[in-house]
Nucleic acid binder design. Sequence first.
DNA 1: AAACAAAGAATCGTGTTGTGATATAATGTT
DNA 2: AACATTATATCACAACACGATTCTTTGTTT
Lengths: 146, 146
Amino acid sequence: MLAMAPKPIQRERTETLAASLQRLALFRYEMRRFLRFSEQAARANGLTPQQHQLLLGVAGFTGRGWATISELAEFLQERHNAVVGLVQRAARQDLVQKKNSLDDRRVMEVRLTVRGRRLLRKLTEMHLDHLRRQRAPWNLRQIIFR
Amino acid sequence: MLAMAPKPIQRERTETLAASLQRLALFRYEMRRFLRFSEQAARANGLTPQQHQLLLGVAGFTGRGWATISELAEFLQERHNAVVGLVQRAARQDLVQKKNSLDDRRVMEVRLTVRGRRLLRKLTEMHLDHLRRQRAPWNLRQIIFR
DNA sequence: AAACAAAGAATCGTGTTGTGATATAATGTT
DNA sequence: AACATTATATCACAACACGATTCTTTGTTT
């Protein structure tokens, strides 16, 4: 009897794991569908998905209308050097504008150009429309924990 | 008087846009923070983030325990060819196993290897733990619409 | 059965992106 | 003056997704 006890427990554990996997998969699937919409909206406007996020971070993260490389790295949850390259490419395409801070000359201030502002505005409207129309269970946490 | 009416409307619109930008930014920021945790958990176990998602899709998306390239493309919200490459690289590292279907020889059946199953199990536990501890406003929709 | 269309997967070249390691410059601290 | 810290930049490299195209197998039409 002592030897038989673990068996049903193991079976129950396996079933729990399978159920968890399915709920986690659905969780990520819903998230990916939103992100996919976003990516395609960006591309349809000639931007890469990350460039769109960069514009959003510059305009909306700090509440100041501009941001430093470090702040953008925090917003994007990326390393500094990833953001440096991203900003460089975006600046080349006249989406943002770099300027060394006068207070602290180590700091790089990133602002939107007119073109960047125009594109972000359009994308923002598309996203808000999409989210409003969305009937999907956007309480993602609820997907996982009943 | 007719000429002055539009001014406050314009001002209000601008304020609404700024507020929307800030809420959208927070929305994406929270999402990125979760995704960042996930990416680092994957990397800490020697996987790329996409490889982890691939394993999750194979094991949890269809309810069958295996998946086709097309199904994985739907789950990952990527194009077929992106998944083909992803599966190839994952197979090279003994994470998944490819097998042509006997029913329809166009179809490729993707399954987890023992190694893939072991890694996914570990990552799944880490993710569930993380989500349980999470006190953040995981009703993302609520972040945007009051 | 032949001709054609559709579905599923694979291949190729290309540009973006993130990483890790390292470097540079400006500011702070002792 | 020596040292550490902060903020940003550079480099080589692999993963990755894209678009376009191709190949094979299955389905449908005539």
